[in-house]
Design a protein around this nucleic acid. Structure first.
Length: 723
DNA sequence: GCAAGGTC
């Protein structure tokens, strides 16, 4: 009889099937293929992550007619139900369960993987075939030899791991559903005024919000301290550089002293060299990228948000341009074939020179990071693409690829060599110091300039005296801490064990969607609502807000994994702890309601940051005075409306796909050209249209007048041009 | 109208 192998995703199923023999595809739906290996009679079934999610049972679905506390105390308050799109997957599980007598769980070798395989998927199999033989494949990579080895050495299913994930899911659902409903009811009056629907509370998001609040508090309470510095600009034949008084910074109390020193030396024309040490220091290439490191790199270098960075990597992966982007590993397996990829870059118009010298010098071993998590290799460019390649759907795709490709090539490069000079000087007996960090040899930095530090120009000092250009006495103030960027938020979350590599970007986005934080010039700021929420909660709910809560949950979960505690016991321990917190909230609820009642909502938009809509650069064709705004409603319907409410003109828009207003204007009517991206069969496609021409064509019933149907003009590089 | 975790 046949064998059924269940994989967590397409990528894994494909690898498993191909390793075990020649594959025949069995098409189930547009997006679901089963991989069949006739020679061994094996079916490999790809899932798409979780099949099930927790929801409130019917009796607990309400918001106002239930007591949210019961969600914690009544075990029947939540149940697992299939996630929307999983119908075809569940159907296939049942179908193949019937014709197989052996089922191998081949989902990812981690907690969620075990949960998906053993608790989401397996029950559907057993339901159809109660006597099916069962085991698990514990894959530490998707390499052929590993798959064959583990296929022949399957293990007993790791139920402990699966239940650890289950406990996590239950705990998060119970906490999230009960607290969200209770908080929403408590804040109802305020929410009504704000035209907002609910306050969401969760183990991860609310902790993160609290951490952002703490920084905001530090900024608010920050008192700038004045201080002084004495600096000298020096003239050297190699270039100008700066020297600093050794006693910098002078505190407020030493202001007089600073002034005395400055007055003593301000007219000096020379600095005497007392000591000059220069060391050459190696700066080694970076280590391979796992998801976390890639997100941190991309958000820093490209100044894009974390969610866009992950989305873009995923899209590049689906288009087979980079390897799987969700990985915890930053070490390549020793047998990873780098040469095949490096060779592809020999002909690249930007990377060829560097790559050729790598191959010429036999530099084909990459650096190593810290961890081989046994999931997927580090993020790797699979193709050498020129910047004008049509496979890049947006500018961001191109830029993300460029950073990832260059970073990959950097792994093989030689060290960069820096020269560190510490120069001790005296200007009329006053001690000065100058540190000069210069780049002597670029090494790997030649391909990855975004990893460069701020280098000074190289200055070779052989003389005993250096001319002084000018000496300054600067009055400065200490600066308040800077708000979080995507990069620092990701690091903060990682440090505090908040979220996972794949959920961190989503959580940041969620807080924005809930109007609790907003992003301004790349930095995150609490909204008035976010601030008010934490102001209320911190008085009575500190133990829940602090990231320590998550850590305690983690410790408990680990007890299940290590087989020291039962899942039910851990769930009950955490529930009990949270129930105490919940009751603390209830007993102090009146304090919050008082605060809400006395809270004057002066300006709704300041409390709940109002959504801003993108504007067209061309004017509304009806009034010819104002641009139009691209409005997306809460129900995800979208249309164009004149930004002047009195004009009341609007255009309808295609409802599907991602829409962008281009800089280009339609040469036929002068309105902006729009671009729409959509997916079909996992491929990203796009089309262009002018809303003015398109709406006219709809009215006249003359078919969809997209730019592709225009007789006179066409779109070239996102611009409308004559044919 | 909720969470957080997978994956597309």
């Amino acid at each position: 009889m046949a064998i059924l192998i269940i994989a967590e995703k397409k990528k894994a199923a494909e690898a498993i099937a191909e390793a075990l023999g020649p594959v025949k595809f069995i098409k189930k739906t547009k997006s679901l293929n089963i991989y069949y290996i006739p020679s061994r009679n094996i079916y490999v079934l790809p899932l798409r992550g979780h099949l099930l999610e927790y929801r409130n049972t019917d009796a607990f679905k309400g918001w106002t007619n239930i007591n949210p506390r019961d969600i914690i105390t009544n075990p029947k308050s939540i149940k697992k139900v299939p996630i929307k799109y999983t119908g075809a997957y569940i159907k296939a599980l049942k179908e193949y369960a019937k014709i197989c007598n052996y089922c191998i769980i081949g989902t990812d070798a981690d907690i969620e993987g075990c949960n998906i395989g053993l608790i989401d998927a397996l029950p559907f199999v057993v339901q159809e075939n109660p006597n099916i033989r069962l085991s698990q494949m514990w894959l530490s990579s998707l390499q052929k030899h590993e798959i064959i080895k583990k296929f022949n050495q399957t293990i007993q299913p790791k139920y402990n791991w699966a239940k650890t994930g289950e406990a996590r899911a239950i705990i998060d659902a119970v906490i999230g559903f009960s607290a969200t409903k209770e908080a929403t009811n408590t804040f109802r009056l305020l929410l009504n005024k704000l035209n907002a629907r609910f306050i969401s509370i969760g183990r991860v998001q609310t902790s993160l919000l609290y951490l952002i609040y703490l920084l905001e508090e530090r900024i608010k309470n920050f008192v700038p301290e004045p201080y002084l510095t004495i600096e000298a600009n020096l003239n050297h034949k190699d270039g100008k550089f700066k020297a600093y008084h050794q006693k910098n910074p002078f505190q407020k109390a030493d202001k007089a002293l600073a002034k005395i020193i400055f007055n003593k030396i301000k007219d000096e024309k020379f600095a005497n060299v007392i000591n000059n040490t220069t060391n050459l220091v190696k700066n080694p290439p970076p280590t391979p990228l796992n998801t976390s490191k890639a997100l941190i790199l991309l958000t820093r270098v490209l100044k894009i948000n974390a969610n866009l960075a992950l989305k873009t990597m995923n899209s590049l992966y689906l288009n087979k341009i980079i390897s799987y982007p969700r990985t915890d590993s930053d070490i390549y397996k020793p047998n990873f074939d780098h040469i095949q990829y490096l060779k592809k870059f020999i002909t690249h118009s930007q990377y060829w020179n560097y790559t050729q010298s790598l191959l010429k010098n036999n530099r084909v071993k990459p650096t190593k990071g810290k961890k081989d998590a046994g999931d997927h290799p580090p993020i790797t460019p699979l193709e050498s693409l020129e910047s004008n390649d049509s496979r890049f759907k947006t500018n961001i795709h191109k830029r993300v690829y460029d950073v990832l490709a260059r970073h990959y090539l950097a792994l093989f490069g030689p060290d960069a060599i820096e020269s560190k000079t510490v120069l001790k000087l005296s200007i009329k007996d006053e001690p000065f110091i100058s540190r000069i960090l210069a780049l002597i040899s670029e090494g790997y930095l030649a391909i990855a300039p975004f990893l460069k530090k701020n280098y000074d120009i190289l200055i070779k000092i052989v003389e005993n005296k250096i001319p002084v250009d000018e000496i300054f006495l600067n009055e400065k103030e200490t600066k308040s801490p800077a708000r979080y960027t995507d990069t620092s938020l990701l690091k903060l979350m990682e440090k505090n064990h908040l979220g996972t590599k794949s959920t961190r970007p989503t959580i940041i986005q969620l807080l924005q969607k809930r109007d609790l934080i907003y992003r301004n010039k790349g930095r995150y700021i609490l909204t008035e609502l976010g601030n008010f929420l934490i102001e209320c909660l911190k008085e009575i709910w500190l133990p829940f807000l602090e990231p320590n809560f998550t850590k305690e949950v983690e410790v408990q979960l680990n007890e299940i994994k290590e087989n020291r505690k039962k899942m039910e016991d851990v769930v009950n321990i955490v529930k009990k702890k949270f129930l105490e917190l919940f009751d603390l909230f209830i007993s102090n609820k009146n304090e919050i309601i008082k605060r809400i009642n006395s809270y004057k909502v002066k300006d709704v938009t300041s409390l709940r940051k109002s959504k801003s809509f993108p504007l067209t650069s061309s004017m509304c064709p009806f009034c010819n005075v104002n641009p139009m705004k691209l409005i997306t409603t809460t129900k995800k319907k979208r249309f164009l409306a004149c930004s002047d409410d009195n004009c009341k003109s609007y255009f309808s828009l295609p409802q599907r796909g991602k829409i962008t207003i281009l800089n280009s204007k339609c040469l036929k009517c002068g309105f902006n050209v729009f671009r729409v991206y959509y997916r079909r069969n996992n491929k990203e496609l796009s089309y262009y249209f002018c809303p003015n021409c398109w709406n006219k064509s709809l009215k006249e019933d003359s078919g969809n007048m997209f730019c592709s149907k225009c007789e006179e003009y066409k779109i070239l590089n996102n611009q409308c041009v004559k044919k």
